[in-house]
Design a binder for these strands. Structure first.
Length: 217
DNA sequence: TTCCCGGACT
DNA sequence: AGTCCAGGAA
């Protein structure tokens, strides 16, 4: 059991410390950021959020035309697509009077289904919203998690939900844990477990199957 | 599979 | 000039 998902979490946490995610001033900003960050690096999302700041409020963004919104979020890339997605999300959000607390009262399963019904919100985006906006306990499967667990030597399912439930099976039902775990995996993916891995001083070196010959640096 | 798309980094 | 990035839809 040296390669359990909880043990991996603990090693990452011991090395990187608390990550204080999601980096946003308000829950609404987090929700918008979750759409903006799709297949985009965070640096470009920040540029878009700075331009959005003056209208970073549900009613204000809803009152913008889609192409006006697209112009504002241009630095994040895919701006025409993302403008429509933000609009679609807001249409759903409005049904709850833009009230986060009302949405939090929904069950995880019900809320997740509703989020996945929004055009432009897929599983990863929905789960990010569930964890970082609505404080629900769910494991976020992203490219960093797939790469990390595969590299460590665990054989994981390709299917998103199969992957997710397999990880969740060995973790306590704690929203704070899932919040920290995803943040730690992203940080680890950026610092050590990159596409071309940097295994020097990797906190998971001793539980990883990565061949020594790959460890140039 | 292909399209959507900017910006930092190599 | 080429690559990569907190994806999702058609």
């Amino acid at each position: 059991m040296s390669k359990g998902f909880l043990q991996i979490f603990e090693k990452l946490y011991a090395y990187y410390g608390p990550q204080y995610w999601w980096p946003a001033d308000t829950v609404f900003e987090m929700l918008i950021g979750a759409i903006l960050v799709q297949n985009t690096n965070w640096n470009n999302v920040e540029k878009a959020l700075i331009r959005l700041r003056p209208v970073l409020h549900p009613e204000k963004i809803a009152s913008l035309k889609t192409d006006e919104l697209a112009a504002l979020i241009r630095p994040s890339g895919y701006y025409n697509v993302k403008a429509k997605r933000i609009k679609a999300f807001l249409a759903w959000f409005k049904k709850y009077d833009y009230n986060i607390d009302k949405i939090k009262q929904l069950s995880l399963v019900d809320l997740r289904k509703q989020l996945l019904n929004i055009r432009g919100v897929g599983k990863e985006t929905a789960d990010c919203m569930l964890v970082y906006a609505f404080e629900k306990p769910i494991f976020i499967v992203d490219t960093y998690a797939r790469r990390l667990f595969k590299r460590i030597g665990l054989q994981m399912p390709d299917d998103y939900d199969d992957f997710r439930t397999q990880v969740e099976a060995s973790l306590p039902d704690n929203p704070k844990l899932y919040n920290e775990y995803h943040a730690l995996i992203v940080e680890h993916g950026k610092v050590h477990c990159k596409r071309k891995p940097i295994c020097y001083e990797c906190p998971l070196f001793h539980v990883c199957d990565q061949q020594i010959e790959d460890n140039i640096t």
